[in-house]
Structure formats: C-alpha cells, structure tokens
Design a protein around this nucleic acid. Structure first.
Ligand SMILES: NC(=O)c1ccc[n+]([C@@H]2O[C@H](COP(=O)([O-])OP(=O)(O)OC[C@H]3O[C@@H](n4cnc5c(N)ncnc54)[C@H](O)[C@@H]3O)[C@@H](O)[C@H]2O)c1
Ligand SMILES: NC(=O)c1ccc[n+]([C@@H]2O[C@H](COP(=O)([O-])OP(=O)(O)OC[C@H]3O[C@@H](n4cnc5c(N)ncnc54)[C@H](O)[C@@H]3O)[C@@H](O)[C@H]2O)c1
Lengths: 231, 231
DNA sequence: AACTAATAGAGAATTTATTCTCGATATTTA
DNA sequence: TAAATATCGAGAATAAATTCTCTATTAGTT
C-alpha cells in the first residue's frame, strides 16, 4: 500500500478538513467550465491556483484527498479529476431530498437547476399553509406537512432541507428526523437540535454577511482616519 | 493602555480571524433571543458555549475581539454584548444596497425582513429583462440595469448584491464597481474579478453542500461496511 | 468574616491548516 | 542525446486556530 493510498484511506476514515471540502467545489466548477469552453484535457495545480487565487500547494494537497494522481510537468487529467471530486463528495449519485417550507426561499431552491450538478434532487416540498399545498412549483408537488413523515419513510428519502421561519425550524427538523433523515441542510437562522447520528449543516447568510460587513466597516474606518490625517 | 485595549485595537487594524467573524452572528442571535424570551440581563461564556455547542474559551476569545469586558462569576451584560457585536460588525449603521438580478433568489432576498438586523437595506433592484422592470417587489422598485451605475453614484450606494446567472455575474460586478461599489455579496457560483479595493464575499451554496454531502457519503460507506462485516 | 463556587482573562500548549523546500520525473528544446 | 524547465509529491517549517491551565476576582453561602 503506497503513501497516496494511505492518505486517501485516511481521508475516507477521518474525512477531509472542512476548508478542503469547501474548496473542492471551486475546482470542480472551474474544471467543468474549462472542459466545456476550451478543449484542454489536462491541468496543473499552478493554473488552478492562479485562476482561483489560491496557493498551488494547497490545491495539490486538496486534490490529493480525492485520490487523483498527477504527472510531473503535465498535471492532472481534467476528466479524471472531475470524476474523482464527484465521487469523493458523493455527487456522482442522485440524492433525493424533501424540502420543508415552500415560501420565498424554498421556491427559489425548488426552481434551481444547478443542484443537478451535485446529484441533489428535490422531489417534493411540504408546508403548513393550505394555500401553499397541492400546488406544483417548478414541477414539484407541495404537500401538507402532515404527510411528510409517512412519505419520507415510504420513499426512503434521507435528506431534508429546512426553509421555514426560524421559530418552526426545530419542529421541521423533528419531523425530518422522525421520517428517517440522515442529513439536514438548514437555512433557518437558528440552531436545531437533532440526534447524534443526523448530520446538520447550516446555511447561515448572516455568517458570510458578517465577514463582509466587518471588512467594510474596517475599510471605512481606515479611509476616515487617513482622510483626517491628510486634511 | 491596558491589554484589552491593545487586543481591540489589533482587531480593528488587522481584522478578526474569519472563524471568529462567522461565529459572532451566532452569539448575536442567541443573545437577542434570550433578551426577548427570558428576562435575564447577564450571560456567561459557559452558557453561550453549551447552548451553541462551542468551547467556552473560544466564545470568550471571540467576545474579547469586540472589546466587551465581563466580570468574574457574573459574565457579560447582554445588552452591552449585543451592542458591541453590532458595532464591531458595523450592523449598528444602515447600509444601503443595490441588488442585481430580480429573479427567484433575488426576489427572495428582497422580501427577507431579517436583514434589518444587520442594518442591510436593499433599496432597489436591477434587471435586464424588461418584464421584470418597473415592478415593485416587496416595496422595492425594479429598474432597468442601464440605470444602475448612474443611480448608484447619485445615491452614493456602496454595497452590491449579485443574483444574476453565473454567465452574467462578471458584467454585473463591473457595473457595480463602475457605480462605486465598495463591497459585493456574490450569490452567483463563479469567481468574479474586481479591483483590489473592492471587497467580495461569495455566498456559495455548493461549498456548504459539499461539506454535507461528503459527511453523508462517508457515513453511508461506514454503515455499508459495518453491515457487510455483520452479515 | 471566612469559605466555596463560578467565571473572566492571560498565556501556554496543542492541534490544524497553510506555505515553503527539495528531490524525482516527465516533457520540451537545443 | 543532453540540458532546461515545469510539475508532482513528500516532508519540513510556519502560521493560525483551538483548547488547556492557571490566577485573580467576584457573588453567594456558611
Ligand atoms: N428569504 C430569504 O432571502 C432568506 C434569507 C436567509 C434566510 N432565510 C431563512 O429561510 C427561511 C425561509 O425564509 P422565506 O423568506 O422563504 O420565508 P417565507 O415566510 O416566505 O416562507 C416560509 C414558509 O414556511 C411555511 N411554514 C411555516 N411554518 C411551517 C411549518 N411548521 N412546517 C412547514 N412549513 C411551514 C410557511 O407557510 C411559508 O410558506 C427563514 O427561516 C428565513 O430566516 C431566508
Ligand atoms: N435559485 C436558487 O436557489 C439559487 C441557489 C444558489 C445559487 N443561485 C444563483 O443565484 C443566481 C440567480 O439565481 P436565480 O434562481 O434567481 O435565477 P433566475 O434566472 O431566476 O434570475 C436571474 C435574474 O437575473 C436577470 N439577469 C440576467 N442577466 C442579467 C444582467 N446581465 N443584468 C441584470 N440582470 C440580469 C434575469 O433577467 C433574471 O431575472 C444564479 O447565479 C444562481 O446560480 C441560485
């Protein structure tokens, strides 16, 4: 067993570091785009790095986690790399999902075609509001929330997306767990509590906005103080 | 100048580490919620930590960045902490923003009342599609994209939100920069190129989905291999 | 008043992530 | 064929983030 194999095995056992996981989609998109727009079949970490403004070594280490091996002076095979990332992230298989809360955000997600890239398929949505139910949005049925658990078990859906208002997010999570959810993608700005074996990721807009706001605030403060010095 | 002052000064000069910035909104929400639902006026890192499943020391270090000082055995004043976070992130001031791309996601963002917490106010939206223009969505006007640059300069709006399809994101960014944007919140899944002095944050759904997918894939692999061992 | 328990704050230790350095290898060019 | 060059892959070095340890302080309790 060579060293690459050891690393890949570790990446499967312990999981890749989160920063790596968050960068892989960036490579993935770039590679797909390159494959479509240009005719090239190979790529090096140097190029990926300069394109995405990342350190080439970092790119190489990230790619290493997926198990792809490259060749000196040449780089990696684009197709091979794309499949490796897909396989590593589980994007090569279709994952069916239920969405809870067919409001503004829920509808936008239901209509988003881009999720097919990740193998994510929202198969149905659920809502408490009778006016929202029995409609078909972007080709998907909206059903009453009371049907969720039963249908989820019957259809063996294991992925849930929460887009209800914060105060109902825990209730939505409970229903998803009862239905057998294994993973939940939570868009509500609250911490939800689930059993240990359920994986939760929060999509928290406030978190990224905080990064942006603080940078902006600092920039403004700098400009002001410099201006003061000048005047 | 005491040590706390030194730390705060540094946090203003060099900026807080990004992980800290991303956690501050979590504290902020918890505190607001506690203030509203319970009558308590003080809180300790221990409580915040156990509530959010974070290490108490980490919470304390994060809070330190905002300049708030606590008292042993008591903790922090909730009101004081809330204002300190607001001030630190720049959420105490209104930031007016223009949104480019009044589609599914753009409309959802325009209708989202939660941004007032961060002082973010979307004052107008812009679109190329004539059918989308001249409408009023959630109380905000949608105008033709050709008006963006002029209006932005006139109204001195410095914050842009991009919700156009990926292939037009760069164009949208260029217009925002031309209009004098200082910060851009990009929801399109592409890397946009802007001058050095413009701050960009990408809200990339694929990144968080990747974290979730990979964990799920790994979990599934484990279950399968365990099942195989058992049988 | 003394004792106990809880907590902030400082700094050290540890862990994790990123960046640097170097040797091996493959490709291209002279 | 030999030399030059770009790149991967491995490991070391560095930097950043997290966690641990200790001390001082304060509120409550006996
Ligand atoms: N709209 C945005 O741009 C945006 C941005 C960031 C976060 N969010 C978050 O996403 C969530 C949804 O936002 P939105 O703007 O779509 O809100 P919305 O009010 O438009 O939609 C919420 C939907 O959930 C349904 N609902 C309420 N309680 C329910 C329950 N117990 N079970 C099932 N369905 C239920 C409502 O009927 C409604 O259709 C909120 O938590 C919000 O904080 C939204
Ligand atoms: N819908 C989602 O849930 C979702 C999720 C993740 C990311 N995104 C990203 O957000 C962006 C918008 O998604 P959407 O679902 O709202 O798409 P959409 O097609 O519903 O809306 C895009 C809007 O942008 C407008 N537009 C196109 N080119 C423009 C230009 N040059 N200038 C101004 N306006 C222009 C279109 O007329 C349309 O109204 C896309 O980049 C998408 O990848 C969307």
């Amino acid at each position: 067993m060579d060293k690459t194999t050891v690393k890949v095995t570790r990446s499967i056992l312990k999981g890749a570091p989160e920063p790596t996981l968050r960068r892989l989609p960036l490579y993935y998109r770039l590679l797909k785009q390159l494959r479509e727009t240009t005719g090239r079949t190979g790529i090096s970490c140097t190029v990926i790095g300069s394109e995405l403004k990342l350190d080439a070594t970092q790119v190489r280490k990230d790619i290493e986690m997926t198990g792809t091996v490259g060749r000196p002076k040449v780089g990696y095979e684009i197709n091979e790399l794309i499949s490796a990332i897909e396989r590593f992230l589980g994007w090569d298989k279709i994952t069916e999902a239920f969405l809870v809360g067919a409001g503004n955000l829920g509808e936008a997600l239901m209509g988003y075609p881009g999720f097919t890239d990740c193998g994510l398929s929202i198969v149905a949505a659920f809502d408490v509001d009778p006016n929202k139910c029995h409609r078909v949005i972007h080709g998907k049925h909206v059903r009453h929330i009371s049907k969720l658990t039963g249908l989820m078990r019957r259809m063996r859906v294991q992925f849930g997306i929460i887009t209800v208002p914060g105060e109902h997010a825990q209730q939505a999570a409970d229903l998803l767990v009862e239905g057998g959810a294994m993973a939940i993608w939570n868009f509500a700005p609250v911490k939800i509590h689930v059993p240990e074996n359920v994986i939760v990721t929060n999509e928290d807009l406030y978190c990224s906005l905080a990064v942006l706001s603080q940078k902006m605030t600092r920039r403004l403060a700098e400009t002001r103080s410099k201006g003061a010095v000048k005047s």
